[in-house]
């Protein structure tokens, strides 16, 4: 099953609703990059509110997707990371240093908009 990518003005909106398996994660990476290319989006928001568990592979793919999107000129905002997921990421040493984060989708969109205006 593919993860739907929605377009909202010049940002892309992705809400991950279920635990990803490796295949879906890679498919998602591919899809997102193509979509950025197609729409020349300037921002990407990935919402992880419903994810409460993450493994090292998915975390790595996520980190890669972020760097790749940035390379293509889209700012990435991750929203709604759950405490347990944050702890896992830190313990795995994945610090996602340059990524923007926000508590929820609403705040994330707001922050991203402000970031894009500068």
């Amino acid at each position: 099953m593919r993860i739907p990518i929605l377009k909202l003005h010049d940002t892309l909106l992705i809400s991950i609703q279920w635990e990803l398996d490796d295949q879906t994660a890679l498919q998602f990476q591919e899809d997102l990059l193509h979509k950025i290319h197609e729409t020349s989006a300037r921002g990407v928001v990935i919402d992880l509110t419903s994810i409460d568990f993450i493994d090292s592979f998915i975390a790595k793919v996520l980190g890669d997707v972020i760097s790749m999107s940035e390379l293509m000129g889209a700012k990435v905002m991750i929203t709604g990371i759950q405490p347990a997921v944050a702890i896992t990421l830190i313990e795995l040493g994945i610090r996602l240093e340059d990524v923007l984060t926000a508590l929820d989708l609403e705040k994330g969109l707001e922050k991203l908009q402000r970031e894009l205006e500068d």
Binding site: I81, A86, I87, I90, L96, T101
Partner: peptide, 12 residues
């Protein structure tokens, strides 16, 4: 430092 990093990840 780890705690601060994790806090940044959840968006604060």
């Amino acid at each position: 430092i780890q705690a601060a990093d994790a806090v940044r990840l959840v968006g604060a």
